[in-house]
């Protein structure tokens, strides 16, 4: 297997590390907007703090990706399939940036400083702006649904490559 048959170790670590983080964030988000249990506040604060971790990670990941050569997609794929594959990956990147940014902005406009593990706080508006809060709150929710959809598509495509096309695409990320 030549070097470019497989994603580099750093890319694989970023991929699986962020997969775990993103799935946890989505689960936490869906739980914390509904739950009235005593752990809700703790989960809420952890979710916000890890949003900061997420944007730092996705930034580092993007820089890392741009510095590495990616394994080529299988030759058997039609051009349009390659285009869809590439576009879906860039859409995932856009969502990975848009989620923490929209999450922070809804907090910002609601006048709620974000405490990051007790180390420091992200600033919030001194004067609440309910219109911008509403905009980013709804956006954060819709982007989350889009992200869940894209992740499902991503997993489905990986399994399709592995079990139906029996090519090297999934293995290249393992």
């Amino acid at each position: 297997m030549s070097n470019t048959d497989r994603f580099s170790l750093s890319m694989r670590l970023f991929h699986w590390g962020m997969a775990a983080l993103v799935l946890s964030m989505v689960a936490a988000g869906l739980l914390m907007v509904t739950s009235l249990q005593t752990w809700q506040l703790t989960l809420l604060n952890i979710h916000k703090a890890f949003g900061v971790v997420a944007i730092l990670l996705v930034t580092a990941r993007l820089i890392n990706r741009l510095q590495h050569k990616l394994p080529a997609l299988p030759d058997e794929l039609a051009d349009w399939q390659k285009t869809v594959a590439k576009a879906s990956h860039w859409l995932l990147y856009i969502l990975l940036f848009a989620m923490p940014v929209s999450g922070y902005l809804m907090q910002y406009f609601a006048g709620r400083p974000v405490d990051v593990f007790g180390w420091f706080r992200l600033p919030a508006a001194l004067q609440v702006d309910i219109y911008n809060y509403a905009l980013f709150r709804e956006l954060h929710g819709w982007l989350a649904l889009a992200l869940i959809g894209m992740i499902a598509l991503h997993i489905g495509a990986a399994l399709h490559h592995h079990f139906i096309r029996k090519d090297n695409v999934l293995k290249s990320m393992l």
């Binding site: 005593t38 809700q40 609601a110 809060y133 709804e138």
Partner: peptide, 22 residues
């Protein structure tokens, strides 16, 4: 437990009316 429940309930009320206002 009552205090801890307030954040999620207030947030839901706020989200609804903010969206309506938007």
């Amino acid at each position: 437990p009552i205090l801890r429940a307030r954040s999620a309930a207030y947030a839901e009320s706020y989200r609804r009316r903010a969206k309506e206002q938007l």
